[in-house]
Amino acid sequence: MVSNKPISQSMIIASVPSAVSDVCGPVLAELEANNFSQEDSFAVHLAIEEAFLNAVRHGNKMDPAKKIKIDYLIDADKVEISMTDDGSGFNPKAVPDPRCGENLYKAGGRGLFLIESYMDVVEFNEHGNTVRMIKYKQKASQSK
């Protein structure tokens, strides 16, 4: 059954990689309850994993005493997720394209690119420590 009532949640989570399941679990369950496609769920799962690990590693510098704030809103048409870390922020425009030149052979640097590839809207605050991501529900006719 599709839930017509938008779900809005805020949580503050420990800045450790394994805590990403505390975000993915409830968000993916809500997407299923709202009849999002498997492709949409895969995209949102990937974006949450990448954004959360970026926040833990690059934002909070693997400091387990720091926190990550998550806000999400899910309604019948879209899912919107914001993540804020305690770090000093970064300039997303300065992140090199991982597909170009020698970057293609580097072990890292693909997280942000994947988020931007799989989500419909990706924005950062001016400080560079909050990312806001939106995925619109795939129409039934677009599902494979």
Partner: peptide
Amino acid sequence: QFLSSAVLGLLIRISK
């Protein structure tokens, strides 16, 4: 069924 970019990095390290 699912992997993150960290696995892509692992594959690059292994391939080297």
